[in-house]
Amino acid sequence: GMDVRRLKVNELREELQRRGLDTRGLKAELAERLQAALSGPSSG
């Protein structure tokens, strides 16, 4: 899988935006949010 901790802030935001998620917050928050999205149930 993707290691969200290795991504830069702008990369985290890009991935979040692609999934329609909130791109605001600290890098740690963005990484946590993206990780949750990646490990969560895949819809679609």
Results as ranks from 00 to 15, higher is better:
L38N: 04
G1N: 12
A36F: 05
S42P: 11
E15M: 08
Q17T: 07
T23F: 04
R13N: 02
V4C: 11
S42E: 13
K8L: 09
Q17R: 15
R5L: 08
L16P: 01
L7N: 02
L30G: 01
L26D: 15
L38H: 03
S39H: 12
L12G: 00
R19I: 07
L12K: 00
R33H: 01
D22P: 14
E15P: 00
V4G: 03
Q35Y: 08
S39Q: 14
L38Q: 05
L7T: 03
R5Y: 07
L16S: 02
L21W: 00
P41N: 14
K8T: 15
R6K: 14
Q17G: 13
L21D: 03
E14Q: 11
E32V: 09
A36L: 10
E29P: 01
E11K: 05
N10G: 10
V4A: 06
S42Y: 04
G44Y: 09
Q17L: 12
Q35A: 12
E29T: 07
S42R: 10
D22H: 06
R33T: 02
A31M: 15
R18N: 09
R24E: 15
L16N: 01
R19K: 06
Q35C: 14
L34G: 01
Q35M: 15
P41H: 12
A28H: 15
A37R: 03
K27D: 07
T23G: 02
A31G: 04
V9N: 04
D3K: 08
Q35D: 07
L26G: 15
K8F: 02
S43F: 12
L26K: 15
E29S: 05
A36W: 05
E32R: 12
K8A: 10
Q17A: 15
R19F: 04
V9L: 13
R6S: 12
R33S: 01
G1M: 11
D3Q: 09
G25H: 01
R13T: 05
V4M: 06
G44E: 13
E15N: 03
E11P: 00
L26F: 08
A31V: 15
E14I: 10
R33G: 01
E14D: 11
E14C: 11
R19S: 03
A31S: 07
K8I: 05
A36V: 09
N10Y: 06
S39E: 12
G20Y: 01
S42L: 10
D22E: 10
A37E: 06
P41D: 14
A31K: 08
R5V: 08
R5P: 07
L26S: 15
D3W: 07
R5H: 14
E29D: 09
G44S: 12
G44K: 12
L30K: 00
L21T: 03
E14N: 09
A37V: 08
G40I: 10
V9Q: 05
A31H: 05
D22T: 02
S42G: 13
L16H: 00
E32K: 12
G1F: 08
G25E: 02
L7H: 03
R5W: 07
R18M: 07
A31W: 07
E11T: 05
G20P: 00
R19D: 04
L16Y: 00
A31T: 08
M2W: 08
G44W: 09
T23P: 11
S42T: 13
G40F: 08
N10T: 13
G20V: 00
V9M: 10
R18L: 11
D3S: 07
T23N: 06
L21E: 05
V9P: 05
S39K: 12
R33Q: 02
A36M: 10
L12S: 00
R24K: 15
R5A: 12
V4Y: 04
E32T: 09
Q17P: 00
